[in-house]
Design a protein around this nucleic acid. Sequence first.
DNA 1: TGCAAATTATTATCATATAAATAGACTAAC
DNA 2: GTTAGTCTATTTATATGATAATAATTTGCA
Lengths: 241, 241
Amino acid sequence: MSSSDLASPELGRNLTFGLLDRLGSQIVTGVFAGRPFPTEADISAAHGVSRSVTREAIKMLAAKGMLSARPRQGITLRPEADWNLLDPAVLGWLLQRKVSIDLLVQFNQLRAAIEPAAAALAAVSASAAGLAEIERGFARMVAADGGRDDGLDADIAFHLAVLRASGNPFFMQFRELVSTALRTSIRFTNRIVGRSADLEAHGAVREAIGRRDPAAARAAMAAIIGDVMEVISGHTELAAD
Amino acid sequence: MSSSDLASPELGRNLTFGLLDRLGSQIVTGVFAGRPFPTEADISAAHGVSRSVTREAIKMLAAKGMLSARPRQGITLRPEADWNLLDPAVLGWLLQRKVSIDLLVQFNQLRAAIEPAAAALAAVSASAAGLAEIERGFARMVAADGGRDDGLDADIAFHLAVLRASGNPFFMQFRELVSTALRTSIRFTNRIVGRSADLEAHGAVREAIGRRDPAAARAAMAAIIGDVMEVISGHTELAAD
DNA sequence: TGCAAATTATTATCATATAAATAGACTAAC
DNA sequence: GTTAGTCTATTTATATGATAATAATTTGCA
């Protein structure tokens, strides 16, 4: 029932965040799909909390584009198109609904758009600190060398370092999505992080950025994600849902 | 003092949303930069509203990643890296701080990553309805033909249609950013929407998507944004801030 | 000094009362 | 019969006061 570890760690901190988490999950999993959304009073009663707690949770969901409240009309579910999907909490709830291949494909389509561009930008404008962070991420991947536990974390650290090195704060917004995609991909595909081909590809990104070659950095990053995408689509028929 | 027209239209609907808007603006414009964030009681007093209103506004800002509240510790400003920059409201506040060339460049770097990818996806998988919407957007641009008022709206409609036609809901998250970037670019650069070269470029996107040619669609969209970027950087030295 | 307990400042929660907004029904005027 | 106005019921919006939980700080003690 609790949300994925991706979502903000404070989701269960208190009654309000707990209710937020439960409602967010329920909304995303379609519990309120056909029927009218319950009223403030109903929610309070159903979850055994005061109106203040309910109202604050509702307001948070409204801030994420999921609900809207008006006098006499009540609380209404906003269309899915209005949800702030890149919000880490929403992303977390989304994974409870469907850790489907579909969602994974959509994640990686977005990664395929963002990460090569970030790599190219990083090649042009990464600071020394940014380059060092990329270097560290790669070193960790090398050290983890294959199936070790740290391999995935190192992989994530590397990709986040590239996003950060782009210098564009909007690109950093995708860190949760990228982390999630990597964590989820690996679970679904049993891909071995750090296997030689993968390591080589990451090395090419690191090298191109260090060499200040945006085109090569872009291409190398695109290759990494293309590989992932290929593995995923290879599993499309297998995985049930 | 009121937020940009981009931000949710309901920002001034009631006391809570009004306070949300004012606090969001103040935070983004750096009013609380050096000093500790005021307490719940201080905010209530300063804005002449009850604690409920204050708490609900605070909770909404927390939901957008901007604030965090804990007993005894008080309300704290979260680092800018945690803000949900793609949230339409945050985006709106951001434009009040600095409608700077910097921000415009960052917007268009993101557009350059997203929109060509969306165009390529649309070429592969757009539905008939999606194609029709793109077609309508382009027709509107042609009809507006040059400096007419509808030109900008038509331009925006075209770009949003491509995002939607991609079929990936995550790409649709960028509609506010794209709309804003287009509206802002035009104000900053006096670019004439619908001038022949621009129209031609948009026609190329439409045609490539219709022809189901992802590579051409990607290239044509990239060209459009490359043009905008060029005009913007041409103004980099001119605009003061 | 170092640890434990008391203090205190602040948010979290609850309960209750009143106000405001609005959808929908009803009514009256033209 | 259609329009505009009015009423009413429902629901959220706002206000307030009391209590609980939390954690930083201070105090007291060994």
